[in-house]
Protein backbone atom coordinates (compact mmCIF):
# COMPACT_ATOMS: atom_id res chain seq x y z
CA UNK A 1 0.00 0.00 0.00
CA UNK A 2 1.82 3.04 -1.32
CA UNK A 3 0.68 6.59 -1.27
CA UNK A 4 0.01 8.11 -4.64
CA UNK A 5 -2.04 10.91 -6.18
CA UNK A 6 -5.31 10.57 -8.02
CA UNK A 7 -3.44 11.44 -11.21
CA UNK A 8 -0.91 8.69 -10.56
CA UNK A 9 -3.69 6.24 -9.86
CA UNK A 10 -5.30 7.00 -13.23
CA UNK A 11 -1.91 6.73 -14.90
CA UNK A 12 -1.19 3.42 -13.20
CA UNK A 13 -4.58 2.15 -14.34
CA UNK A 14 -3.62 3.02 -17.91
CA UNK A 15 -0.30 1.23 -17.62
CA UNK A 16 -1.87 -1.87 -16.22
CA UNK A 17 -4.62 -1.86 -18.85
CA UNK A 18 -2.12 -1.33 -21.67
CA UNK A 19 0.01 -4.18 -20.36
CA UNK A 20 -2.93 -6.49 -19.82
CA UNK A 21 -4.58 -6.15 -23.20
CA UNK A 22 -2.93 -5.43 -26.54
CA UNK A 23 -6.17 -4.04 -27.88
CA UNK A 24 -6.09 -1.14 -25.45
CA UNK A 25 -4.70 2.15 -26.69
CA UNK A 26 -5.01 5.78 -25.65
CA UNK A 27 -5.66 8.63 -28.05
CA UNK A 28 -6.34 12.29 -27.70
CA UNK A 29 -4.87 15.73 -27.99
CA UNK A 30 -1.41 15.97 -26.44
CA UNK A 31 -1.60 12.63 -24.67
CA UNK A 32 1.82 11.63 -26.03
CA UNK A 33 4.69 14.02 -26.42
CA UNK A 34 3.18 16.67 -24.19
CA UNK A 35 2.31 14.12 -21.53
CA UNK A 36 -1.40 14.88 -21.28
CA UNK A 37 -2.98 18.25 -20.56
CA UNK A 38 -3.38 17.23 -16.91
CA UNK A 39 -0.25 15.06 -17.07
CA UNK A 40 -2.20 11.87 -16.60
CA UNK A 41 -0.43 10.12 -19.46
CA UNK A 42 3.05 11.49 -18.69
CA UNK A 43 5.68 8.88 -19.48
CA UNK A 44 3.33 6.50 -21.24
CA UNK A 45 4.58 7.39 -24.71
CA UNK A 46 8.09 6.29 -23.80
CA UNK A 47 6.78 3.05 -22.39
CA UNK A 48 4.18 2.11 -24.98
CA UNK A 49 5.13 3.97 -28.14
CA UNK A 50 3.25 6.32 -30.47
CA UNK A 51 0.88 3.70 -31.87
CA UNK A 52 -0.69 3.05 -28.50
CA UNK A 53 -0.24 6.50 -26.99
CA UNK A 54 -1.56 8.29 -30.00
CA UNK A 55 -1.43 12.05 -30.33
CA UNK A 56 -4.32 13.38 -32.38
CA UNK A 57 -4.90 16.64 -34.20
CA UNK A 58 -7.45 19.08 -32.78
CA UNK A 59 -10.41 17.09 -34.04
CA UNK A 60 -12.63 16.12 -31.12
CA UNK A 61 -15.38 14.81 -33.30
CA UNK A 62 -12.97 13.08 -35.66
CA UNK A 63 -10.96 11.19 -33.09
CA UNK A 64 -13.89 10.40 -30.83
CA UNK A 65 -15.65 8.94 -33.84
CA UNK A 66 -12.46 7.12 -34.71
CA UNK A 67 -12.53 5.66 -31.22
CA UNK A 68 -16.04 4.40 -31.90
CA UNK A 69 -14.94 2.88 -35.17
CA UNK A 70 -11.86 1.30 -33.62
CA UNK A 71 -14.02 -0.18 -30.87
CA UNK A 72 -16.33 -1.60 -33.51
CA UNK A 73 -13.28 -2.92 -35.29
CA UNK A 74 -12.04 -4.97 -32.35
CA UNK A 75 -9.88 -2.57 -30.36
CA UNK A 76 -10.38 -1.24 -26.82
CA UNK A 77 -9.69 2.46 -27.23
CA UNK A 78 -9.47 5.01 -24.47
CA UNK A 79 -10.22 8.45 -25.85
CA UNK A 80 -9.07 11.36 -23.74
CA UNK A 81 -10.80 14.68 -24.28
CA UNK A 82 -9.00 17.54 -22.61
CA UNK A 83 -12.01 18.95 -20.80
CA UNK A 84 -15.74 18.44 -20.81
CA UNK A 85 -16.24 21.77 -22.56
CA UNK A 86 -14.37 20.47 -25.60
CA UNK A 87 -16.37 17.27 -25.58
CA UNK A 88 -19.21 19.35 -26.97
CA UNK A 89 -17.39 19.29 -30.30
CA UNK A 90 -17.67 15.50 -30.15
CA UNK A 91 -21.20 15.40 -28.85
CA UNK A 92 -22.50 14.25 -32.21
CA UNK A 93 -20.31 11.18 -32.10
CA UNK A 94 -21.00 10.45 -28.45
CA UNK A 95 -24.76 10.82 -28.59
CA UNK A 96 -25.64 9.98 -32.17
CA UNK A 97 -23.21 7.10 -32.63
CA UNK A 98 -21.64 5.70 -29.46
CA UNK A 99 -24.89 5.69 -27.51
CA UNK A 100 -27.13 4.55 -30.34
CA UNK A 101 -25.31 2.00 -32.48
CA UNK A 102 -26.12 -0.93 -30.29
CA UNK A 103 -29.78 -0.07 -30.35
CA UNK A 104 -30.02 1.04 -33.98
CA UNK A 105 -28.34 -2.15 -35.12
CA UNK A 106 -30.79 -4.29 -33.20
CA UNK A 107 -28.02 -5.50 -30.91
CA UNK A 108 -25.62 -6.57 -33.66
CA UNK A 109 -22.87 -4.10 -32.89
CA UNK A 110 -21.65 -2.76 -29.57
CA UNK A 111 -19.16 -0.02 -28.86
CA UNK A 112 -16.65 -0.93 -26.13
CA UNK A 113 -15.20 2.56 -25.93
CA UNK A 114 -13.95 4.48 -22.91
CA UNK A 115 -13.94 8.27 -23.06
CA UNK A 116 -12.18 10.13 -20.28
CA UNK A 117 -12.27 13.82 -19.67
CA UNK A 118 -11.56 16.42 -17.06
CA UNK A 119 -14.50 18.22 -15.51
CA UNK A 120 -15.19 20.82 -12.90
CA UNK A 121 -14.07 24.21 -11.70
CA UNK A 122 -11.66 25.55 -9.12
CA UNK A 123 -8.59 26.43 -11.13
CA UNK A 124 -9.73 29.85 -12.32
CA UNK A 125 -9.97 28.63 -15.86
CA UNK A 126 -13.11 30.70 -16.44
CA UNK A 127 -16.19 30.02 -18.48
CA UNK A 128 -14.95 27.72 -21.25
CA UNK A 129 -12.87 25.26 -19.23
CA UNK A 130 -14.63 24.78 -15.94
CA UNK A 131 -18.05 23.35 -16.35
CA UNK A 132 -19.54 20.18 -14.93
CA UNK A 133 -21.61 18.65 -17.67
CA UNK A 134 -21.50 15.03 -16.53
CA UNK A 135 -25.15 15.39 -15.52
CA UNK A 136 -25.98 16.11 -19.17
CA UNK A 137 -24.29 12.95 -20.29
CA UNK A 138 -26.12 11.02 -17.60
CA UNK A 139 -29.29 11.94 -19.48
CA UNK A 140 -28.34 9.69 -22.39
CA UNK A 141 -29.46 6.05 -22.53
CA UNK A 142 -26.77 3.81 -23.95
CA UNK A 143 -23.94 5.44 -22.00
CA UNK A 144 -22.50 4.71 -18.59
CA UNK A 145 -21.26 7.73 -16.68
CA UNK A 146 -18.62 7.37 -13.99
CA UNK A 147 -17.31 9.98 -11.59
CA UNK A 148 -14.40 8.57 -9.62
CA UNK A 149 -13.78 10.59 -6.48
CA UNK A 150 -11.34 8.36 -4.59
CA UNK A 151 -7.95 6.89 -5.33
CA UNK A 152 -9.44 3.41 -5.51
CA UNK A 153 -12.02 4.52 -8.04
CA UNK A 154 -9.53 6.59 -10.02
CA UNK A 155 -7.60 3.38 -10.48
CA UNK A 156 -10.30 0.73 -10.58
CA UNK A 157 -12.94 2.37 -12.69
CA UNK A 158 -10.77 2.46 -15.80
CA UNK A 159 -10.33 -1.29 -15.83
CA UNK A 160 -14.01 -1.84 -15.16
CA UNK A 161 -14.91 0.58 -17.94
CA UNK A 162 -12.62 -1.21 -20.39
CA UNK A 163 -14.22 -4.51 -19.49
CA UNK A 164 -17.67 -3.12 -20.22
CA UNK A 165 -19.07 -3.93 -23.67
CA UNK A 166 -20.68 -0.50 -24.05
CA UNK A 167 -19.45 3.09 -24.14
CA UNK A 168 -18.39 4.41 -20.75
CA UNK A 169 -17.58 8.03 -19.95
CA UNK A 170 -15.26 8.81 -17.06
CA UNK A 171 -15.27 12.29 -15.59
CA UNK A 172 -12.19 13.27 -13.62
CA UNK A 173 -12.69 16.36 -11.51
CA UNK A 174 -9.70 18.64 -12.01
CA UNK A 175 -9.43 19.41 -8.31
CA UNK A 176 -8.80 15.77 -7.53
CA UNK A 177 -5.71 15.12 -9.66
CA UNK A 178 -3.25 16.20 -6.96
CA UNK A 179 -5.13 14.55 -4.12
CA UNK A 180 -3.02 11.92 -2.39
CA UNK A 181 -4.21 8.67 -0.93
CA UNK A 182 -3.59 4.98 -0.59
CA UNK A 183 -4.60 2.53 -3.28
CA UNK A 184 -6.33 -0.27 -1.42
CA UNK A 185 -8.79 -2.01 -3.71
CA UNK A 186 -7.67 -2.63 -7.27
CA UNK A 187 -11.06 -3.70 -8.54
CA UNK A 188 -13.98 -1.31 -8.69
CA UNK A 189 -17.56 -2.03 -9.58
CA UNK A 190 -19.30 0.46 -11.86
CA UNK A 191 -22.83 -0.21 -10.75
CA UNK A 192 -23.24 0.99 -7.22
CA UNK A 193 -23.06 3.99 -4.98
CA UNK A 194 -20.90 3.88 -1.85
CA UNK A 195 -21.54 5.05 1.68
CA UNK A 196 -18.42 7.11 2.44
CA UNK A 197 -19.53 8.03 5.92
CA UNK A 198 -22.29 6.25 7.75
CA UNK A 199 -24.72 8.38 9.73
CA UNK A 200 -28.28 8.41 10.95
CA UNK A 201 -29.61 11.98 10.94
CA UNK A 202 -29.45 13.08 7.29
CA UNK A 203 -28.22 11.75 3.95
CA UNK A 204 -25.84 13.92 1.93
CA UNK A 205 -25.73 12.64 -1.64
CA UNK A 206 -22.91 13.73 -3.90
CA UNK A 207 -20.25 12.60 -6.38
CA UNK A 208 -16.90 13.55 -7.87
CA UNK A 209 -15.11 16.67 -6.66
CA UNK A 210 -17.88 17.58 -4.24
CA UNK A 211 -17.40 14.41 -2.22
CA UNK A 212 -14.55 15.87 -0.22
CA UNK A 213 -16.36 19.11 0.51
CA UNK A 214 -19.34 17.09 1.61
CA UNK A 215 -17.25 14.93 3.93
CA UNK A 216 -15.76 18.09 5.37
CA UNK A 217 -19.26 19.44 5.91
CA UNK A 218 -20.24 16.17 7.59
CA UNK A 219 -17.39 16.59 10.09
CA UNK A 220 -18.54 20.11 10.90
CA UNK A 221 -22.06 18.80 11.40
CA UNK A 222 -20.74 16.01 13.62
CA UNK A 223 -19.09 18.59 15.86
CA UNK A 224 -22.53 20.10 16.25
CA UNK A 225 -24.13 16.76 17.07
CA UNK A 226 -25.60 16.00 13.63
CA UNK A 227 -24.66 12.59 12.30
CA UNK A 228 -24.70 12.80 8.49
CA UNK A 229 -24.47 9.85 6.13
CA UNK A 230 -22.50 10.68 2.99
CA UNK A 231 -23.27 8.80 -0.19
CA UNK A 232 -20.90 8.95 -3.13
CA UNK A 233 -22.98 8.17 -6.21
CA UNK A 234 -19.84 7.09 -8.13
CA UNK A 235 -21.94 6.16 -11.15
CA UNK A 236 -24.33 8.80 -12.52
CA UNK A 237 -25.80 6.49 -15.09
CA UNK A 238 -27.30 4.10 -14.22
CA UNK A 239 -28.07 5.62 -10.82
CA UNK A 240 -28.05 3.32 -7.81
CA UNK A 241 -31.62 3.98 -6.75
CA UNK A 242 -31.61 1.33 -4.08
CA UNK A 243 -28.68 2.83 -2.22
CA UNK A 244 -30.20 6.30 -2.29
CA UNK A 245 -33.60 5.14 -1.11
CA UNK A 246 -32.22 2.85 1.57
CA UNK A 247 -30.23 5.65 3.11
CA UNK A 248 -33.08 8.14 2.96
CA UNK A 249 -35.44 5.58 4.47
CA UNK A 250 -33.05 5.43 7.40
CA UNK A 251 -32.26 9.14 7.87
CA UNK A 252 -35.55 10.58 6.54
CA UNK A 253 -33.77 13.66 5.24
CA UNK A 254 -31.59 14.36 2.23
CA UNK A 255 -29.52 17.08 0.61
CA UNK A 256 -28.02 16.57 -2.85
CA UNK A 257 -24.71 18.26 -3.63
CA UNK A 258 -23.92 18.63 -7.32
CA UNK A 259 -21.31 20.75 -9.11
CA UNK A 260 -23.65 21.07 -12.08
CA UNK A 261 -26.03 23.99 -12.43
CA UNK A 262 -29.26 23.57 -10.49
CA UNK A 263 -31.81 23.77 -13.32
CA UNK A 264 -32.24 20.43 -15.00
CA UNK A 265 -29.40 19.01 -12.95
CA UNK A 266 -28.46 15.56 -11.82
CA UNK A 267 -29.42 16.81 -8.35
CA UNK A 268 -32.92 17.40 -9.71
CA UNK A 269 -33.04 13.83 -10.95
CA UNK A 270 -31.90 12.42 -7.62
CA UNK A 271 -34.39 14.59 -5.80
CA UNK A 272 -37.21 13.43 -8.07
CA UNK A 273 -36.30 9.81 -7.47
CA UNK A 274 -36.40 10.34 -3.72
CA UNK A 275 -39.79 11.98 -4.14
CA UNK A 276 -41.03 9.03 -6.18
CA UNK A 277 -39.54 6.33 -4.02
CA UNK A 278 -39.37 7.64 -0.47
CA UNK A 279 -41.86 10.50 -0.22
CA UNK A 280 -43.65 9.02 2.80
CA UNK A 281 -40.38 8.43 4.60
CA UNK A 282 -39.31 12.07 4.35
CA UNK A 283 -39.39 14.42 7.32
CA UNK A 284 -38.29 17.43 5.26
CA UNK A 285 -38.13 18.57 1.65
CA UNK A 286 -35.08 17.34 -0.24
CA UNK A 287 -32.47 20.10 -0.33
CA UNK A 288 -30.00 20.89 -3.08
CA UNK A 289 -26.63 22.56 -3.18
CA UNK A 290 -25.61 23.20 -6.77
CA UNK A 291 -23.41 25.55 -8.73
CA UNK A 292 -24.87 29.04 -9.12
CA UNK A 293 -26.53 29.63 -12.44
CA UNK A 294 -23.70 31.56 -14.01
CA UNK A 295 -20.92 30.68 -16.45
CA UNK A 296 -17.96 30.00 -14.17
CA UNK A 297 -16.31 33.39 -13.54
CA UNK A 298 -12.59 33.93 -13.60
CA UNK A 299 -11.90 35.71 -10.26
CA UNK A 300 -11.21 33.33 -7.44
CA UNK A 301 -13.74 34.77 -5.02
CA UNK A 302 -16.51 34.58 -7.60
CA UNK A 303 -15.55 31.10 -8.71
CA UNK A 304 -15.59 29.96 -5.08
CA UNK A 305 -18.93 31.64 -4.55
CA UNK A 306 -20.41 29.91 -7.59
CA UNK A 307 -19.47 26.39 -6.46
CA UNK A 308 -20.91 24.19 -3.73
CA UNK A 309 -18.78 24.77 -0.61
CA UNK A 310 -18.73 23.06 2.77
CA UNK A 311 -20.37 25.92 4.73
CA UNK A 312 -23.29 26.03 2.29
CA UNK A 313 -23.67 22.26 2.56
CA UNK A 314 -23.68 22.55 6.35
CA UNK A 315 -26.35 25.25 6.18
CA UNK A 316 -28.50 23.21 3.81
CA UNK A 317 -28.25 20.18 6.07
CA UNK A 318 -29.19 22.21 9.13
CA UNK A 319 -32.14 23.74 7.37
CA UNK A 320 -33.37 20.26 6.42
CA UNK A 321 -33.11 19.22 10.04
CA UNK A 322 -34.97 22.31 11.14
Amino acid sequence: MTELTYREAVRQAHKDALNADERVFLMGEDVGQYGGCYAVSKGLLEEFGPERIRDTPLSESGFTGAGIGAALGGMRPIVEIMTVNFSLLALDQILNNAATIRHMSGGQFNVPLVIRMATGAGRQLAAQHSHSLEGWYAHIPGLKVLTPATIDDAYGMLGAALADPDPVLIFENVMLYNRPGILEARVADIASAAVRRPGKDITLITYGGSLWKTLEAAETLAAEGIDAEVIDLRVLRPLDNAAILASVAKTRRAVVIDEGWRSGSLAAEVSARIMEGAFWELDAPVGRVCTAEVPIPYPKHLEDAALPQAPVIVAAAKSAIG
Binding site: T64, A66, A70, L72, G73, D92, M104, F109
Partner: peptide, 29 residues
Protein backbone atom coordinates in the same frame (compact mmCIF):
# COMPACT_ATOMS: atom_id res chain seq x y z
CA UNK B 1 -30.30 2.68 -40.23
CA UNK B 2 -29.68 -0.60 -41.99
CA UNK B 3 -27.02 -2.57 -40.12
CA UNK B 4 -25.78 -6.06 -40.86
CA UNK B 5 -23.02 -7.79 -38.98
CA UNK B 6 -22.46 -10.73 -41.37
CA UNK B 7 -21.51 -8.38 -44.21
CA UNK B 8 -19.79 -5.83 -41.93
CA UNK B 9 -22.33 -3.21 -42.90
CA UNK B 10 -21.98 -0.52 -40.23
CA UNK B 11 -25.06 1.52 -41.03
CA UNK B 12 -27.07 3.62 -42.18
CA UNK B 13 -25.88 6.89 -40.56
CA UNK B 14 -28.35 9.77 -40.75
CA UNK B 15 -26.08 12.50 -39.47
CA UNK B 16 -24.50 14.13 -42.49
CA UNK B 17 -20.77 13.47 -42.15
CA UNK B 18 -21.27 11.32 -39.05
CA UNK B 19 -20.07 8.10 -40.65
CA UNK B 20 -16.68 9.37 -41.73
CA UNK B 21 -14.99 9.34 -38.31
CA UNK B 22 -16.34 5.84 -37.70
CA UNK B 23 -14.85 4.64 -40.97
CA UNK B 24 -11.54 6.20 -39.94
CA UNK B 25 -11.72 4.28 -36.67
CA UNK B 26 -12.57 0.97 -38.30
CA UNK B 27 -9.58 1.48 -40.55
CA UNK B 28 -7.42 2.45 -37.60
CA UNK B 29 -8.33 -0.82 -35.91
Amino acid sequence: HLFHEPTRFYGGNAIVGGGLPIAVGLALA
